[in-house]
Design a protein around this nucleic acid. Structure first.
Length: 231
DNA sequence: ACCCAGGGCGTTG
DNA sequence: CAACGCCATGGG
């Protein structure tokens, strides 16, 4: 059947959704907070990023105008829990410069760009890579862009869809070419994958050294029905 | 005392 | 392009 890949992906999503319920992403009070959160959560547990967000909020810094006026040195101490805080303060700074220079600090103006153009512009901001840019496009701008992370690539490999871990582009292409162009599906699918990564068994089901979710010749089901929730 | 988290950049080979 | 080192906190 021509829709075999599509059905397989939808089956993975169904398993996850059935296990975890709708994830209702992105966890934030505003779209602007999504953008800052996307930077702060780079290579760190969400718990840490969340603390950094609280730090900004307590200083009344999680607003475009306030954040735009502050130097990176003033932002850094507020986001220490997010790890790599000096780098991330500079990344936030770089984004704010771009945000005001190009769009006057107005998200609706930025969101009026075409997804392809905006993606390219975001990637030109130092500190925003593909995953961060795509998180902004999908979760802040509501654009139909599938977000790939380390877990996503591992799923494709451990399911045997790819023999080795695919590149970001390969993984993204696989999802967007085989799934219906459905923003809500893109939204929750990625959230489900992250939730799976946060589950605890012996080790995390999708962590690099997980013995349970390793390829075993047949299709890996991640022991979805047997892993425990981390929450 | 480990290990790893919802990455990205700069530098090598 | 792949494979590194670097950035440098907090929870299990």
């Amino acid at each position: 059947m021509r829709d075999k890949k599509r059905d397989e992906l939808l089956e993975i999503y169904r398993l996850l959704r059935n296990r975890f319920g709708h994830r209702n992403w992105w966890p934030a009070d505003s779209s602007f907070e999504v953008i800052i959160g996307a930077i702060l959560t780079q290579n760190v547990a969400w718990n840490n990023a969340s603390k950094a967000i609280d730090g900004l909020k307590r200083a009344n810094m999680l607003e475009p105008l306030a954040l735009n006026e502050r130097a990176a040195e003033e932002i850094a101490p507020l986001i220490k829990p997010s790890r790599f805080y000096n780098m991330k303060a500079m990344k936030i700074k770089n984004f704010m410069d771009f945000y005001y220079r190009e769009y006057g600090g107005d998200l609706s103006v930025m969101s009026a760009e075409s997804p392809a153009v905006l993606r390219k512009k975001l990637l030109a901001v130092k500190g925003l890579g593909q995953e961060t840019a795509d998180c902004i496009l999908l979760y802040a701008c509501g654009m139909p862009i599938f977000v790939v992370d380390a877990y996503t690539k591992r799923i494709l490999q451990r399911y045997g869809i790819f023999k080795k871990e695919p590149s970001y582009e390969e993984a993204q292409r696989y999802f967007t070419e085989n799934l219906p162009r459905d923003i809500e599906l893109y939204n929750d699918f990625h959230a489900q994958i992250v939730q799976l990564g946060n589950c605890v068994c012996k080790t995390r089901p999708l962590c690099g050294s997980c013995p349970i979710a390793a390829v075993n010749g047949s299709k890996c089901r991640f022991t979805i029905t047997t892993v425990h929730r981390s929450e």
